[in-house]
Design a protein around this nucleic acid. Structure first.
Lengths: 255, 255
DNA sequence: CGACGTGTTGATTCCTGTCAATACTCGTGG
DNA sequence: CCACGAGTATTGACAGGAATCAACACGTCG
């Protein structure tokens, strides 16, 4: 059985005072992953950190963005809103994920910190300049964008074709998978914290918060999951959860 | 009133015999858009054309892809399928769109020609090599991938939060917009051909084909659209259609 | 003509949304 | 100390929209 750190408070152990890229927890997965020492030194000169509290809006939809950034620790979301208030989350930003688009002024989405959040920011213009002369950055950004596109497409299947129960199971599978990159070997059980409120999960999955609550309760009743408090989830058997998600069970964690 | 070419047969006017990139209809929008003359000459050496008939599968999910390609003319789709047969379209490929991912072996999606289709193909390895030494290609691919990601996110809002009627109206707005790049100035009415069957539209929108059919009929009954045959759509007032789509009406065509 | 692919329409079911009441936790302040 | 309110979560009753099952229309092609 593995045990994964919670998202809520304790995970922001990375101190902003720690300015060394070499010690950065996302050094090898973020947009800078492929950079050499000298390239890293250049990035180090134009970077700065920002902290946000859980609930704070990082960027308002339509606002001008004068920086791009990597999530160092914490969880943020991208959300789209219709005039009548209907909302759909369109991006879930976990540590190492990149925010902002080179070559574009504003953000079309609200970016909201869901937990306390540390971002490693670069002013947009210097970053764009550097990208143009540093293929390692552009290459890594392309790779990450393609990964995001794959994730978006998996998400589209969830939104378009899965039942409420399958949506919840799929979401939990995704969280488990992303949290478990540090996993050692194969295991069947797993514990993690939900990084989102029921309402945010509803925005993620195209449901109402009531339906989310009901389906979480149903999965608990059927012993697919167990709850410790409202947020901590224990999955006795990941295979069962993946089955409930409607995914190929030989995919995912058990490969 | 503008008149846009149909998708079905006539649009494949681009002859495969026409091998000159300079004459290529997608020269300025495809992955090669930023290439200089000499770069184009290099691409020209590794490219080859392939033709597919409507309905043909270009790539099977899971298959090894030994090439990447641009859509020259026609329409193709990316589709994901669950074990029990539920399907969700996750990509709509129109002329100039790019297929395939550098640095990956197989395709996770079925790629299907929805009309007769001409593709400009590059063997993967030579293309990747060229990408590594040609920033213009990598830059353009990044830009196109970011655009696709934006489209995917708009699509997620449609799938997650819109009603069946809004989904149909949104789809028609998207087709109208993508067809109308050649539009001159502002106009309110518009004519186009639906590039997909009712069933494929259902896969696109996360609906059943019956619901698609019903909602198309409803939009016709309410005079939001008119039909000429089953596929040709006349929109008397794009503003009304955009309203039905639930989008910001000051966006889209009327800016 | 009959088979097939495509599309339309109707009757019915059921999943999820909507509206509403209640519980729990955590601060704040009397 | 407890009352109070805000934010979060659970659960119930009910309604509605889309899925399902089914019949039928239309055009093409053998």
């Amino acid at each position: 059985m593995i045990q994964i750190n919670g998202h809520r408070k304790m995970q922001n152990a990375y101190n902003v005072a720690t300015q060394e890229c070499a010690d950065c927890p996302i050094r090898h997965r973020a947009v800078c992953a492929r950079c050499e020492e000298d390239e890293l030194a250049q990035l180090e000169e134009i970077k700065f950190y920002r902290n946000y509290e859980a609930g704070q809006t990082v960027i308002w939809s339509g606002d001008k963005m004068d920086f791009v950034a990597s999530v160092v620790s914490g969880v943020a979301t991208l959300t789209q809103t219709m005039e009548d208030g209907r909302r759909q989350m369109v991006g879930l930003l976990l540590p190492s994920d990149f925010v902002g688009r080179p070559g574009r002024e504003g953000s079309p989405y609200d970016v909201v910190a869901r937990t306390d959040l540390v971002m490693c920011c670069f002013r947009k213009r210097p970053f764009e300049d550097m990208m143009n002369r540093t293929p390692h950055i552009a290459q890594r950004l392309l790779q990450m964008t393609l990964d995001e596109l794959d994730a978006a497409r998996e998400w589209m299947l969830i939104l378009g074709r899965k039942t409420a129960r399958e949506k919840i199971a799929s979401f939990m599978s995704i969280i488990a998978r992303r949290d478990a990159v540090l996993s050692t070997g194969r295991m069947t059980s797993c514990t993690f914290d939900l990084p989102l409120t029921r309402e945010a999960m509803a925005d993620y999955l195209g449901l109402t918060l009531e339906t989310v609550s009901r389906q979480v309760s149903a999965l608990k009743r059927d012993d697919v999951i167990r709850l410790e408090g409202k947020r901590r989830v224990v999955v006795p058997d990941m295979g069962v959860l993946l089955e409930e998600a409607g995914d190929d069970c030989d995919g995912g964690l058990l490969v």
